[in-house]
Computed example of a mutant assay.
Amino acid sequence: MGISVKHISKSYKNVKALQDISFEVKPGELFGLIGPDGAGKTTLFRILTTLLIANEGTATVAGFDVLHDYKSIRKHVGYMPGKFSLYQDLTIEENLEFFATIFGTTIEENYDLIKDIYVQIEPFKDRRAGKLSGGMKQKLALCCALIHKPKVLFLDEPTTGVDPVSRKEFWEMLKRLQEKDITILVSTPYMDEAALCDRIALIQDGEILQIDTPEAIVKHYPKQIYNVRANNMYQLINNLNAYKYNHSVYPFGEFIHYTDSREDFEPADLVAYLESKNLLHIEIEKTEATIEDTFMELAK
């Protein structure tokens, strides 16, 4: 069972949080909603998990309508909100037992589904949730979202504020859950995580910019990108922004990602310009586009 979203719009007074959003998530797919804070990701998740009502449009989750079948949806989905929302004063085990009881099941009944995750926190099962590290809170929240064996799993920015090792472990867990025929919709502001999804939707200011596989989105980037570096990076970015032929200029790690507006661009021309600005040790080389480059281009 997948997800179908058709022309969903949502406003808060004069602010349009979502504008005519449409997409499909196939059964068993790991689908990513990629965008910065304020893009509308959480609003969409709350609509799909029946916590908010859209102003316009329709949506179904696991075959159930979000408006008319909200009780059925709540039985068949797992939801992990962006903010840790479990009971801080309860232990790991008590939180898990509580959520299992709510859904009329037990930890033992669905233990096979959470085993890979739970064994990592089980040694601390008597520790209160409020005393857990970010990575352990994340694993507990995922266990609680899975304990009733949902058909669809919603994860709203699950790795925000979590260390890199825990982020990597978390995505490995998602891949294993996908093998159990669970449809997963995950949102993230991290562009590097987008490449781990089957398909992604890039979202900005409540609008979908593009939907495709990560590979296809990167492949269709319209220009050649150059890595540019010099002795004074602050001056370099200012000089590149002032260059009359620049198409885009973005900091990217130890380089500046630069694209030129001319079809017949020659790097030597840019080197000469930068040397005239007294920059030294200038390096310019071709590089491949990333999802972040594509997002920045589409959001311009």
Rank of each mutant, 00 (worst) to 15 (best):
K223M: 09
Y111F: 13
Y273T: 04
G206H: 07
Y273S: 02
M233C: 12
L18Q: 06
P222H: 15
E288D: 00
I102C: 15
S187N: 01
L140H: 05
R127S: 11
R229E: 10
A216C: 09
V5Y: 03
T160R: 13
H247G: 12
E297S: 06
K13A: 12
K125Q: 02
Y258F: 14
V152E: 08
S9K: 01
F84T: 02
T106G: 00
A272Y: 14
S187C: 01
Q88P: 14
A216P: 06
V152M: 07
P251E: 01
I184Y: 06
Y258P: 09
I21D: 00
T42D: 03
G40E: 15
E56G: 05
S276Q: 07
I217G: 15
I147M: 00
I282T: 10
T60V: 07
H281S: 10
G57R: 00
T259F: 01
S166A: 15
R127A: 10
T294E: 11
K139V: 08
Q210D: 13
A201P: 06
R262I: 04
G161H: 01
F265D: 09
E193A: 07
D37L: 03
L33V: 06
T91V: 10
H148K: 03
Q19F: 09
I114R: 13
A289E: 11
L30W: 12
F154C: 03
T106F: 03
K10F: 05
S133M: 09
F31S: 00
I53L: 12
D293P: 03
V249D: 07
E297L: 14
T287C: 14
Q19D: 15
L298V: 05
K300S: 12
D264P: 05
M136A: 13
A201C: 09
A62P: 04
I211K: 07
Q19W: 11
E169H: 08
Q224C: 14
K10R: 01
G32I: 06
F99W: 11
P251D: 02
T42H: 09
L33W: 04
R167K: 11
P164G: 03
A201Q: 08
G104L: 03
T160P: 11
P36A: 07
T106L: 00
E122Q: 08
M233S: 14
L236A: 05
F103Q: 09
D264V: 13
A129H: 00
L155K: 05
I147G: 11
K41F: 09
T213Q: 04
L90S: 11
N239I: 07
E24C: 02
A59Y: 01
D69Y: 03
D89C: 14
K71P: 11
Y79M: 08
E108F: 13
S187D: 02
G38K: 10
E215F: 07
E283D: 01
V162R: 02
D198K: 04
F170W: 03
C143V: 09
C144N: 00
I102V: 15
D116S: 01
L86H: 06
P189V: 10
R176Y: 11
Y111S: 08
K26F: 10
V271G: 03
F265M: 13
D126P: 10
H247P: 00
E93D: 09
L90D: 10
F98R: 06
H76F: 12
A141S: 09
A145T: 00
H281F: 13
E292H: 05
D89Y: 13
Y190R: 04
L202F: 01
Y79W: 12
Q120C: 02
V25G: 12
P158S: 13
N95G: 00
G38F: 09
N95Y: 06
